[in-house]
Write a protein that binds this DNA or RNA. Structure first.
Length: 423
RNA sequence: GGUGAGAUGCCUGAGUGGCCGAAAGGAACGGUUUGCUAAACCGUCGUACGGGUCAAACUGUACCGAGGGUUCGAAUCCCUCUCUCACCGCCA
């Protein structure tokens, strides 16, 4: 969430940026400020009254020790009066603090100055593109036919075991999946990221920390029996590794990577969006998370973009990088680059990675801070990106590298997959 | 799942009603000494939210797992919960 002090000092900027993000309830900004004013007044009143109580209590102790029972009793009566005043102040203070938090939760992160104006995906800006655009042979097929032809994935079986959107990978399909995960993780750790295997279920505090709650409650599977949520991305458990911690400045940047399955309810999706591997309820992803000094977070963002770009290039896939417009960005992000890979047989671009700088928005909720050179704690900036989401990469690999007599495996992947082609 | 013991600052660990935001030791950081290393010595060494200030100094409140309660006053007493450890049961 945004820092109240920042909102107070930069109100005009905040309003302007919220508008860029297509945020309509601008009155929330004033609500936050007035609630914070009220909170300060009440806090002062409470603290001053409580201070009197504390002083009196000490005096009572001394009077008792001195054997002055009467003096002690009269003091007690005075304290009782003070405490009666305290009660309603405290009640209101708690209410105000709760409302303030709720109001702050309503405000999305502010887009960075380089974020393009716009409302829909059409307004996203293509930053650059690359990779070899394939020329498919006459009988080229979409991936859901290839997976069936080569016996790589059984969608119907998954439907029977669980439901739609839970495919069963088998044979070379399962092995390719495993090879990709291994390759991605090695690539990340070779570049200085520390590998983690986090829990796949998180509690409500963690989901709140990264912004899934309360904003996107319906996106996650909720295990009500124990109050846990299935992770929609490794971002949630991995970023929460540093919840409520003060990091040494010398330890920054913190670079983490993790493979996890991801679970998303994806309510309301339909049609060609969900065909084959395009959109699933369970999928695999290798994620990058960095916690960095605020001064360097945008350099880090560019580094992460290049890191992911090289990985896609090594898979010999055609891609483009988009800078998302204000209206298409996620609630918590300040600047996001999406990577899309061209699905040749479908004739459409599929998002395979999203790399974002959240600045202090997540870390303010998480209370992930570091001590600066003056000894003051400051929020670190958090960033994350996929490297990569597996199903769409798999789909594009199959479609783009298909030939009349099989599917070619990119050279970078062959050591992991163990052969140069499928079929 | 059952029984028992616990949860204190970066770590170990004292503290059973007021003098405790908290002893002591260690680690860390700064300094002195030193041919270098080591040792020794001195100092610093929690967080949040307020007040105050140009900024500091200074100052108030809260926090000893979490939440409630008793009391003029709680790390200390009571209740609930969570977690940790040990043993038993079960089990990949």
């Amino acid at each position: 969430m945004l820092q109240v002090q920042f909102i107070r000092q930069n109100k005009d900027l905040v309003l302007e940026r919220l508008a860029l993000k297509q945020f309509k309830e601008l009155s929330v900004v004033d609500e936050v400020l007035s609630l914070d004013d009220r909170r300060k007044k009440l806090t002062l009143e409470y603290d001053e009254t409580q201070a009197q109580v504390n002083v009196s209590s000490k005096e009572i102790g001394k009077l008792m020790a001195a054997g002055d029972k009467e003096g002690a009793e009269s003091r007690k009566a005075a304290v009782a009066t003070l405490k009666q005043r305290l009660q309603p102040i405290n009640d209101e203070l708690k209410q105000v603090e709760e409302n303030l938090t709720l109001a702050l939760y309503k405000l999305p992160n502010l887009p960075h100055s380089s974020v393009p104006a716009g409302k829909t995906p059409e307004d996203n800006v293509v930053v650059r593109s690359g990779g070899p655009m394939p020329t498919l042979h006459a009988g080229a097929k979409p991936h859901w036919e290839l997976t069936s032809q080569y016996d790589l994935i059984d969608f119907e079986l998954g439907t029977r075991i669980t439901g739609s959107g839970f495919p069963v990978y088998k044979n070379k399909g399962a092995k390719l999946q495993r090879a990709l995960i291994q390759y991605f993780l090695d690539y990340n750790t070779d570049n200085g990221y520390t590998e983690f295997q986090p829990p796949y279920l998180v509690n409500a505090e963690s989901a709140t920390g990264t912004g899934q709650l309360p904003d996107k409650e319906g996106q996650m599977y909720h295990v009500t029996e124990d109050g846990f949520y299935l992770i929609p991305t490794a971002e949630v458990p991995v970023t929460n590794i540093y919840r409520d911690t003060i990091i040494k400045e010398s330890e920054l940047p913190i670079k983490m990577t993790a493979y996890t399955p991801c679970f998303r309810r994806e309510a309301g999706s339909y049609g060609k969006d969900v065909r084959g591997l395009n959109r699933l309820h369970q999928f695999d992803k290798v994620e990058l998370v960095q916690l960095v000094h605020p001064d360097t977070s945008y350099d880090t963002l560019e580094n992460m973009v290049q890191h992911v770009e090289k990985l896609i290039l090594s898979l010999e896939l055609p891609y483009r990088i988009l800078r998302l417009c204000g209206g298409d960005m996620s609630f918590t992000s300040a600047l996001t680059y999406d990577f899309e890979v061209y699905s040749a047989a479908q004739g459409r671009w599929l998002e395979v990675s999203s790399v974002s700088n959240f600045e202090g928005y997540q870390t303010n909720r998480l209370k992930a801070r570091f001590k600066d050179s003056h000894g003051k704690s400051q929020l670190v900036h958090s960033l994350n990106g996929s490297s990569l989401a597996l199903p769409r990469i798999l789909a594009c690999l199959l479609e783009n590298h298909q030939t009349a007599d099989g599917i070619a495996i990119p050279a970078s992947l062959q050591p992991y997959f163990g052969s140069a082609k499928i079929g």
